[in-house]
Design a protein around this nucleic acid. Sequence first.
DNA 1: AATTGACTCAACCGCTCGCTG
DNA 2: ACAGCGAGCGGTTGAGTCAAT
Length: 244
Amino acid sequence: MGRQPCCDKLEVKKGPWTAEEDKKLISFILSNGPCCWRAVPKLAGLRRCGKSCRLRWTNYLRPDLKRGLLNEAEEQLVIDLHASLGNRWSKIAARLPGRTDNEIKNHWNTHIKKKLLNMGIDPVTHQPLRKETETSSATDYLADFVKHLPKVPETNGSDENSCSSDERCDSNLFKNDPLISSLLGDDPDIPQVDVPWEFPSGEQIFDSVSWDDNISSLLDFQGFDCFSDVEMNSSNVLELRHEQ
DNA sequence: AATTGACTCAACCGCTCGCTG
DNA sequence: ACAGCGAGCGGTTGAGTCAAT
């Protein structure tokens, strides 16, 4: 039996969201909360897939999102977390408040990857890239490479604690490299921000305020205070957001 | 001014996971 | 134990933008 499509592909709209669609989605979420994404498009009057609505909300419209590029500290945290978690972007994003997995993934692919490569660090393994000039020949390079390979345990190779005290598996191998050693170390200063985002109920924050007030609140929350002098209504606010 | 190539990032796709009956 | 379903995740795509020529 084939899997049912998540939505009627013939009826749903694709591509960039319009201000009107954003308005409908925000309005719906503000009054109902982010639940049952499959039903959201129908209830909100959107010709979109529920999946698309969830993505739009979590990656763009959510009021607790930070804007702009990741700062130095965030970038370092991403590198650090990637070293231990790999490409588990949602896990990484959970440690960076206000950042989405998509945003971090994009930033990794466009900025951090290059940065690490320029620093001579393999963005996948987080270990120093080897330059040809450092070894006298390809044979030497291979021999050296094999020498530093971690021992593969005979049983259950996936066990991350399976490394013995053998120096080939020792995290001290690259301890002379400041970045690597910092990546390998357990930095107590790294915040363990692993709390789920709590959606403020309409009663708590948006009670007895109009749609336009809600939009202003959202923008205030996200640091759009530069527009405080502008008369805000739902249409011009969303136009502004789309201009970003 | 026009063209081109590199870059960015919002959005989509397909898959997996976890819950429920 | 199994199937069905919704939600979430990670990889990929492509339109828009911008700098270089």
